[in-house]
Simulated assay, not measured.
Amino acid sequence: MILTLDPHSPTPPFEQLRSQVIEGVRSGALAPGDKLPTVRRLADDLGLAANTVARAYRELERDEVIETRGRLGSFIAVTGDATHKQAQLAAIAYAERVRALGVGETEALAIVRAALGIRP
């Protein structure tokens, strides 16, 4: 999979990279165990600061999409797409919180739809 940037996009470059890796994992273009380019190499290839690529990699690692193995480099996590797991955990936490606040199901769903920009 080739990672690219849209210089005209309002989305920051680190987020464009992060999103592309996640989409690559979801589509199967990136398989568990696939090695990613080094931070420096990808930064040079894309004309970015190394810190920009490093931030994308840190966030992907935090979300368990990739894993860094020290000097060996960064790889797609063997667990595959962990973003769904993270979304499920966030949904569970939200559900528990709105219940504790006494927010009804209909209102809680309306809040989520508004947060996602979904119009009724």
Rank of each mutant, 00 (worst) to 15 (best):
Ala31Trp: 07
Gly73Asn: 10
Asn51Ile: 01
Phe75Lys: 06
Glu59His: 09
Arg40Gly: 12
Leu72Val: 08
Pro32Lys: 03
Ile76Val: 15
Ala115Cys: 07
Ile111Arg: 14
Val65Gly: 08
Val103Pro: 02
Ala54Trp: 05
Glu105Ala: 07
Arg41Thr: 12
Ala100Cys: 07
Ile2Thr: 12
Ala56His: 01
Leu60Tyr: 02
Thr68Pro: 03
Val78Tyr: 10
Lys35Phe: 09
Phe14Met: 10
Gly70Leu: 09
Leu72Pro: 04
Ser19Met: 08
Ala93Val: 06
Phe75Pro: 08
Glu15Lys: 04
Arg71Phe: 13
Glu61Gln: 10
Ile111Pro: 00
Ile66His: 01
Val103Asp: 02
Pro12Asn: 02
Arg71Leu: 15
Ile92Phe: 11
Arg41Gln: 15
Ile118Glu: 15
Asp45Lys: 02
Ala90Ile: 09
Val65Gln: 10
Ile111Gly: 07
Ala43Tyr: 09
Lys85Arg: 14
Asp34Ile: 03
Glu59Val: 04
Val103Ser: 01
Ala87Val: 08
Pro7His: 06
Lys85Tyr: 13
Ile92Arg: 12
Ala110His: 06
Glu64Asp: 11
Leu101Ala: 12
Ala31Leu: 14
Arg71Trp: 13
Ala49Gly: 13
Val39Lys: 13
Thr68Gly: 12
Ile2Leu: 13
Pro7Gln: 05
Val25Glu: 07
Asp34Gln: 04
